[in-house]
């Protein structure tokens, strides 16, 4: 089966305010870390290209506002995602408790075959730890998710986490992708591609105006 084609996925970062969603994204895409907490008020996104099994996977990662008052609005973004990071802060028992709520929202609002991964961030904060690794593992098992403890601060497990979810999404959509590629079947809608079509052309042509070639 032919397999070298490019794919676009949308992944979503969810979790309480302050657990480090924005920091995870910044570390992953720009390899930067900002110690101050500037709460995300809105929905931000960045692009990243990964190569998985020889397939160029372009992922669009959406960073959502964690604050409770915005949750009714952020929920509407779930249905457009193929993968979700459920992030808590290992120094905050409360953020861990809330994972249940986030997960049930995802069940309610996200597409059925969405892939999820559990992330316990701030693993560097050994002294302030409130959530044991085992608790994370247990919860992840209960939900049938993979689990990573990460640190955006020390760059621990960041690439691994993002790559893992991308791999899972790719695997979950592999059949459809092959089918789509071979038959042009209309029913399969991977990422709302119609919307994206323009983005790349636009961005790409902007680039070409620069110093390239």
């Amino acid at each position: 089966m032919a397999k070298q084609y490019d794919v676009l996925f949308r992944l979503l970062l969810l979790g309480d305010s302050g657990v480090g969603k924005t920091c995870l994204l910044c570390r992953f895409t720009d390899n930067e870390f900002h110690p101050s907490h500037i709460s995300t008020i809105g929905v931000d996104f960045k692009m990243k290209t990964l190569e998985i099994d020889g397939i160029k996977v372009r992922i669009q990662i959406w960073d959502t506002a964690g604050q409770e008052r915005y949750q009714t609005i952020t929920k509407q973004y779930y249905r457009r995602a193929q993968g979700i990071f459920l992030v808590y802060d290992i120094t905050s028992e409360r953020s861990f408790q809330h994972i249940m709520k986030w997960a049930s929202d995802v069940d309610e609002y996200a597409p059925e075959k969405i892939r999820k991964i559990l992330v316990g961030n701030k693993s560097d904060e050994v002294d302030k730890r409130q959530v044991a690794t085992e608790q994370g593992i247990k919860l992840a098992n209960a939900y049938g998710m993979d689990f990573f403890e990460t640190s955006a601060f020390t760059n621990h497990n960041i690439t691994e986490t993002f790559t893992r979810l991308a791999e899972q999404v790719l695997a979950a959509n592999k059949k459809d992708l092959d089918l789509l590629r071979m038959s042009g079947n209309e029913e399969i809608n991977l990422a709302a591609l119609e919307e994206e079509e323009g983005l790349y052309e636009r961005v790409a042509s902007d680039e070409s105006k620069g110093c390239w070639c």
Binding site: Y5, D6, V7, L8, K56, R58, L177, L180, R181, S183, G184, E186, I188, N189, L190, L193, E196, E197, Y200, E201, A204, S205, E207, S208, W212, C213
Partner: peptide, 16 residues
């Protein structure tokens, strides 16, 4: 859709 998925939008990137 298949085409979008398969490539053209990435053609420019490839060249870059």
């Amino acid at each position: 859709k298949a085409q979008i998925l398969a490539m053209p939008q990435f053609g420019l990137r490839d060249n870059l």
